[in-house]
Amino acid sequence: MKLDRTSFAILAMGAILLIAGPALPSWMVSMLNVSLCYGTVVLGMMLLMRNGIVSFGHGLYFCLGAYAAGLLDQMLKMPDMLLMVGAAVVVTGVVSAILGLLLAKYRDIFFAMLSLAFSMILYGLLVKTASLGSTDGFNVAAKTVAGFAVAPESQRLMVYSLAVVFATVSAFFLHSYLASHQGRLAGAIKDNELRVEYMGASVMRAVHRNYVISAVLAGIGGALMAVNIGHIDPEMTYWPQSGEFVFVAILSGTGSVFAPLGGALVFEAIRSFAYEYSPNTWQMVLGITMLLVMIFLPGGLWSLFTRKREG
């Protein structure tokens, strides 16, 4: 694998965030942490969008990842952060590999609706599962990393660092994946599936593979979010949560793996400030932002950068 400029930039970003962590004010650490969790999910959304596919049910994997992490703590009494993320990867990988077989045949609004249905099935199950706290969910706490105990006072920093590492690694691999033949194939599928088949590639197989990757990314994001917030509930798979991921993906654009990470940060910033200053209109702010972006920046915020570079 040869490293290009973007790969280096991703690694540099990760290193800087990691080193700066202890020096940052705690509100900034929280905001970055949530953004990185979200950003990881949106990396997956971006991969699907490169194929011309929008999922309106990615909350499913976000939630599954979080519950996989939570159950490891609650049922198996193994509150290890790395194990939690690992469990999320396995669970979302398996579930998406199965559901992907069905979904890979769907496009456009039908893909959106079937993925929505799957996420709402999980929602319907969770809200009625008393042992998992029904609508209230339950608390999650991670106490070790790879078996090493973490002191309570360095807990927050540890969770943040883990989010940095996983988001960086995810972005790094997604970037090299997209820079390979697979990335070009995704664009080709978006443009003309018929021709892709007539060039001898299986569109279904490619979409399935990308769906599983995007689900696993959402699962990682979910597990990180669970340990970050310390609490999980079925809202994570309720449709407005999935809508939020679509929102951030649109806001970001699909031009680069930096777009989802940066977009998630912008989103978190808008949300925190809007929520702080007028808790009853923050959704309105989001809605208006989304409309403005769709009308004036169809390529998302990322297109601001590429435009400047070209001009």
Binding site: V54, F56, D108, I109, A112, G243, V246, F247, I250, N280, T281, W282, Q283, M284, L286, G287, I288, M290, L291, M294
Partner: peptide, 17 residues
Amino acid sequence: EVVLVLVTYALFLILED
């Protein structure tokens, strides 16, 4: 069509508030 869904999603957020 998917873009139109998203437009109405934005509208939904605005109307909710």
